[in-house]
Write a protein that binds this DNA or RNA. Structure first.
Lengths: 210, 210
DNA sequence: TTAATTTTTGACCATTTGGAAAAATATTAA
DNA sequence: TTAATATTTTTCCAAATGGTCAAAAATTAA
């Protein structure tokens, strides 16, 4: 009955339990948003009792916080991988591909992020202003350089990145709408395959130097 | 103390009051989502008491429903305007422009819509499967025709539409992130002006026949 | 084995929230 | 004016929800 006060899980069992809770919470939060989710729902989803959840996390907020923190790490990886060394077009294509794969493989995280931004990003505004801005500034500089060297058609590098974010995340966040418009027949793999081809074509056409 | 049961407001006063409530509700819902919003918040925002809200709308649901209904009407207008008669490139450019203007002028509606979709579109799934799909099918056909006639470079028309939706709505829904990345300095008009130029360039490059 | 410790849960509490009832106030019709 | 009607608010309630507590159960240490 003593509360866990360690931040870092000790035993394998504890770590496992926390992961179970986080996964359940991701499921629930991504579907209903923070305020729309209840600890009961999370407990239900995780298959354990509500007080047991509060044994591992001291509040609903804390679960959400850890979820968001883990998310951001994963979220920035693809852009971090964009490197000056490679071929510009290939680098951008790869970035788009990676981003779209994340939308396909981690739609819940994508929606969680979308939700957080919609609410005004209360928990990560510092991260956006700091780490994210820095990263984008750095990569925008690389892209600008490529353009100046004539290896990439000129567009605003910041808005280019926005466009890539928007188009790829759309397939996770607006999945319901995409499915409705395309009709039921399209399987998820087929859908993302087409999206992949489309976005590749779209951006390559816009960025290839003629 | 008798409840209003008419759907259509009668007097000018009533209509005005309902509009006030709807506007307040839009403000609150778009910020916190349906479950995250309380009637009290709406009442506060509208500057009237909670029961007075329930005098004009019988439940929180009903307010939300009317909001969504009004939204959808407005939301489909730009795509409806895309007409076979005009010059393909001009038509697409105009559509993008209109869509972006909506993101600029009606960001709350955009976020409300985003929220609704994120939750799985419980209130408008029928509309998406029906009216929206029909409309998109129709316009996709026009776009396809243009492509076959060689007046537009070939891309998947459905995914093209998705890309336009995604990129334009991004500036409303992810405004916090956009502002963070661009830094505080950019005024809203400047921001949208650049976005406008960028998207115009991006899609024209991708769609113009070489 | 028994004692100590950790984990889990049932019962409970305080607050919030959607909504109802009815009284009070304002407005309109006579 | 007065009576009828429409509007607004004060008061209240029942359900939902975040979180506590102590006891039960399981696990580990001796």
């Amino acid at each position: 009955m003593k509360k866990l006060n360690t931040r870092i899980p000790n035993t394998r069992i504890q770590r496992q339990k926390r992961l179970t809770i986080l996964d359940a919470a991701l499921e629930v939060f991504s579907k209903n948003g923070f305020r729309g989710s209840t600890i009961d729902q999370i407990a239900n989803q995780a298959g354990i009792s509500k007080p047991n959840i509060l044994y591992y996390y001291s509040s609903k907020q804390e679960i959400h916080k850890e979820l968001i923190e883990r998310l951001m790490e994963k979220w920035l990886t693809p852009l971090e991988a964009l490197s000056e060394g490679g071929d510009p077009i290939s680098e951008i294509r790869l970035y788009i591909k990676r981003k779209l794969e994340m939308a396909r493989d981690f739609p819940r995280q994508s929606r969680l992020f979308n939700n957080e931004i919609l609410q005004g990003a209360p928990h990560i505004i510092d991260l956006l202003d700091g780490e994210l801005k820095n990263l984008v500034d750095k990569k925008a500089k690389i892209i600008s350089k490529w353009m100046k060297e004539g290896r990439l058609a000129k567009v605003d590098p910041y808005h280019l990145i926005f466009s890539i974010w928007a188009t790829t995340q759309h397939y996770a966040d607006f999945d319901v709408q995409v499915c409705a418009v395309l009709g039921k027949e399209k399987a998820i793999n087929k859908r993302f395959e087409r999206a992949q081809k489309h976005l590749d074509l779209l951006f390559v056409r816009a960025l290839r130097v003629k």
